[in-house]
Design a protein around this nucleic acid. Structure first.
Lengths: 219, 219
DNA sequence: ACGTCGTACTGTACACCGTACGTTATAGCT
DNA sequence: AGCTATAACGTACGGTGTACAGTACGACGT
């Protein structure tokens, strides 16, 4: 008796339920460990039941990404534009830190979907209202977005490594074994490099650099 | 007759040969399609032969990453530091564009290895020589690196999508279907957003923003 | 010239994966 | 009550990484 599961009643599934469950699983077990079969098991359903609602795994990923982007930051009204930009970028970073799978979802597939457009709308609106021309606004938006994506993905990556004791030990070991005649500056700055990896301060440092550059070109 | 392969003579494999072949395969068929079994087949060898030289797939990825980083840019001597930084960042971007798998290799695993340290040494050396203090140099290095990584990964991602006609058509379709009352700025700037996605100009725009910010804080 | 020994490669096997295809049974409509 | 559209199912295929045990060959000491 292989513990036959009774047939699941109809209409117990829905796109929303699937997306929520998928998200929960990704956050519990890690994005890489996520699988359609695991998701189906969690839902108490055969693997193929998912395909009634999503054509394939990538389409499910897109849905999860869009679901998360809906939680993205609003633009605070009535503040100077540099503060508005800071708020949006910090909000997006915050969202990525709270949902680490978002970093991988964003990196792995291009943007699309309403919620993603909502985020772009916020940033672009700020830039246009601040007086930037169309091309500069577009370029700045892309720059800010890729900066947040790159910086935060990296931060998440390192944090994950830090939590894996064996990998972290190996990283420290190779760092420590670098010849200080071949790489004098790296060896000298090793403490700073380690200390300044990740964290709000590091993120704000880069963000402020970009905004300072922007204010300068804006006169 | 299942075309039995004669036993491969010993010592026909080497870490270098494996890494080079793996890199060739990743660039020919795409990083995602790369597999140990495919690599072994290309080498005319059983899949398990690889494990004599690398403990697992991730370790092989690390080796390929380090192999590619060895091709990274040198710091040009005798130039003002902003130009040196520009040269190194552009060189890294160039390397990532020439070897698109590098983006995924860098995003997926943390840095380690001599060749990666070499790249850090170059940038950090420039910053220290320019008079930045230890902490600022470390922070700036991380900022620049994650900026290049994020911007170029994104660029590669979009370019891949553009080459996939079906996916590209769908992206244009969802872009075109955005209600211009809900997302007025996105719709208005759609041409600019599309035109300014990727390319040297977009990259240099962001890079110059960072450097301008840096020059300002440096007085 | 000849054993012998370490090890580079092999074969088999396992536990997974995504998903194509055809089937079945039930929710809701007539 | 009967019909039908379709949600969930079972089976199967071709793929994956890699554990583990076996085998034959290159090199080396005698």
């Amino acid at each position: 008796m292989p513990a036959v599961r009774p047939r699941t009643p109809r209409n117990t599934l829905s796109p929303e339920l699937i997306v929520r469950t998928a998200l929960d699983l990704m956050e519990a077990k890690g994005t890489d460990a996520f699988s359609i079969r695991g998701l189906a098991a969690e839902l108490g359903v055969g693997p193929m039941a998912i395909y009634t609602y999503f054509r394939n795994k990538d389409e499910l990923y897109d849905a999860v990404r869009d679901h998360l982007m809906a939680l993205g930051p609003e633009v605070p009204a009535g503040e100077p534009w540099p503060d508005q930009i800071r708020a949006v970028c910090r909000g997006l970073r915050r969202l990525m830190l709270q949902h680490p799978c978002l970093a991988q979802l964003l990196a792995g597939r291009p943007l699309s979907g309403h919620e993603t457009a909502r985020m772009a709308e916020g940033l672009l609106g700020v830039l246009r209202a601040a007086g930037f021309d169309a091309e500069t606004s577009a370029r700045t938006h892309t720059t800010l977005f890729t900066f947040v994506l790159g910086a935060t993905s990296w931060e998440i990556q390192i944090a994950a490594e830090r939590r894996n004791p064996e990998a972290w030990r190996r990283l420290r070991a190779t760092m420590g074994s670098l010849s200080s005649s071949e790489f004098p500056t790296v060896v000298e700055l090793a403490p700073e490099l380690s200390r300044t990896t990740g964290g709000d301060e590091q993120f704000d440092y880069g963000l402020d650099l970009l905004i300072a550059g922007l204010e300068q070109t804006h006169h």
